[in-house]
Design a binder for these strands. Structure first.
Lengths: 335, 335
DNA sequence: CTGTTAGCGCCTTCAG
DNA sequence: CTGAAGGCGCTAACAG
């Protein structure tokens, strides 16, 4: 299976160069003191023989893989794609490889993935928008040396966190508040169904009450954070409730699915139905009517997560939080 | 830096279980013959001590990393995101990890990435839509044990390939042919600028000539495969050439950028300007007017690429080609 | 069915 | 500034 032909090792180079393996190692890693002459000579031999250090051997002794693992719910969601882009960019710039796991919005798969990525696979771990409940997630990451969570809410500081300042619930509240201010009365909400993560419906209802706005449990449904799921949920919701004059989607994909469902059901946007999403993906801006949404610095958040992780690997043990403000982008879908 | 506390090794387990390391190894890898009694006993000890084999040590001796590397031009392009999803899915199902490199549409970075991912990093390599010229790409992948190219055209069979049957040039030709059939006369083309990869403009012009359709070098410009680049290119093209009554975009993102530019410049779609893209991303369908495009099985292509790669790793040395047909999806943007 | 021996390729440590 | 010895944790190959 594996090719039998021996690869060029550090010893081969050493022999060829007439020095000890240690000297070659020093040249390769740029450590210790080496005379310029030998350094150049060794470098010559290295490139002549096309020597490449073995990662495995190096990892075995240094206990560093120079890899970070990133777990993401769905890379076809542009929101995560951009976060991932930011994370990979920084990792690459620092000489780290990125091991990607896509859980396809399945908590069970996330669990399996997390229990398989251990210290011997990657030096650090970034978990993006985990769909696991605290009591499942915690044990899975507890023993790791470096972990950063993206978009994880909760008090318990068991890892560094990068997220939007006020959390998911607050986003919906802001949206509803805006809609009420616009004169909308009967507001539906498609909240994201995220595995074991606590729902934020209570917060939403509370806010509606505070606004003296109408509420109705039948107006609130859950949806996976995908277009298809949002579309399906909205078909049901809108068909059952012609009285709704606005819908808040858990994110842009869901709101966009809702837009399609609304159009199919003959609702005009924004006249009959106002719509708000979240994440500010490209599609939200380019669709007609353009979708009102919340913008977050996705690339930057991914980049920050990696930086935080590298800090931890560098010995900075503090748990930190990076909080980002979400800006509401008002577009035609809210009139 | 690395924690000093020794991890649990196979020897620890062996000692604790009163057997040899070899027996533990056999239990872990499920190889050789082991009595049921000892197997169960060893498994007990393993889980009690929470033993995890060291990847590095294993890799060092087996020469297998159980990782595949995937190089992609831009993961925020939904086209690649879906391919990646397919590839990761299959890899995961076979116990392989995915090492992701995103080159951000920069050939130089692709080159750097490819020269750093060697056999000691990943067992196999999938290069998606390489932007490198043959004479650059070839040496970089020549010595690898297993390589699969996605969407790479060219005669030279130097690696297995997964791609659409008729290639990028043909897609544009089909689009133009359709537009001419619709009565469009002056057709612009925003072709994808892909580093050192040969342009397909010649093929396009040839086809137009065959159709006895008007051609004009000024109607053809290049664009990166991104929305922004398509938008910029189209602003210029459409401003300079009011006479155009159709534009073919290299892919959906470019065509969508063109759509935005056209709207801003007061062109009505499809009345004044017909538009065709390619890739069939979600956004193409959901935009108004919906974009005519070419559909390809993206997820399936990524999955097939990984399967091909795993075949090669399994010893199947044949170079293979998987070809997929592109179906033209006619939507409102062409009237 | 189980154990022994001998590395895989590199870097840490300690001597020169 | 350079080298020698030893070991990181595991499995292939061969014994028994």
């Amino acid at each position: 299976m594996a090719r039998k032909e021996r690869r060029v090792t550090i010893e081969d180079v050493a022999r060829e160069a007439g020095v000890s393996p240690m000297t070659v190692s020093r040249v390769v890693n740029n450590t210790g003191r080496i005379s310029d002459r030998t350094r150049r000579h060794v470098q010559d031999v290295i490139s002549r023989m096309d020597y490449r250090p073995s990662r495995a051997a190096r990892t075995l002794v240094t206990r560093q893989t120079k890899m970070i693992a990133i777990v993401v719910p769905d890379i076809t969601n542009p929101y995560f794609a951009e976060i991932l882009q930011g994370a990979e960019d920084v990792a690459w710039a620092h000489g780290y490889g990125v091991l990607l796991s896509n859980t396809n919005e399945r908590p069970a798969r996330e669990e399996a993935v997390l229990s398989q990525i251990e210290e011997t696979t990657a030096d650090g771990l970034i978990v993006c928008a985990s769909r696991l409940a605290d009591d499942v997630l915690l044990p899975l990451i507890a023993k790791r040396r470096a972990v950063v969570l993206i978009n994880r809410e909760g008090q318990d500081r068991f890892a560094s966190v990068v997220r939007s300042r006020y959390g998911f619930g607050y986003r919906a509240v802001r949206a509803a508040r805006y809609l009420v201010g616009l004169g909308r009365r009967r507001i539906g909400y498609l909240l994201l169904q995220r595995g074991g993560v606590r729902s934020n419906l209570g917060m939403f209802v509370q806010a509606m009450n505070d606004l003296a706005a109408e509420t109705n449990p039948d107006w609130y449904r859950t949806s996976l954070p995908t277009w298809e799921s949002g579309y399906e949920a909205a078909r049901g919701l809108l068909a059952d409730h012609p009285e709704l004059d606005a819908v808040v989607g858990g994110n842009d994909l869901v709101a966009l699915g809702t837009m399609r469902a609304a159009i199919e059901l003959g609702r005009r946007i924004p006249d009959d139905l106002a719509l708000i999403g979240g994440d500010d993906i490209l599609m939200a801006r380019e669709v007609t009517p353009a979708l009102t949404t919340f913008s977050v610095p996705k690339f930057e958040m991914g980049a920050a997560a990696t930086r935080l992780l590298l800090d931890q690997l560098g010995g900075d043990a503090r748990y930190q939080e990076y909080l980002y403000d979400e800006e509401m982008i008002v577009r035609a879908s809210t009139g």
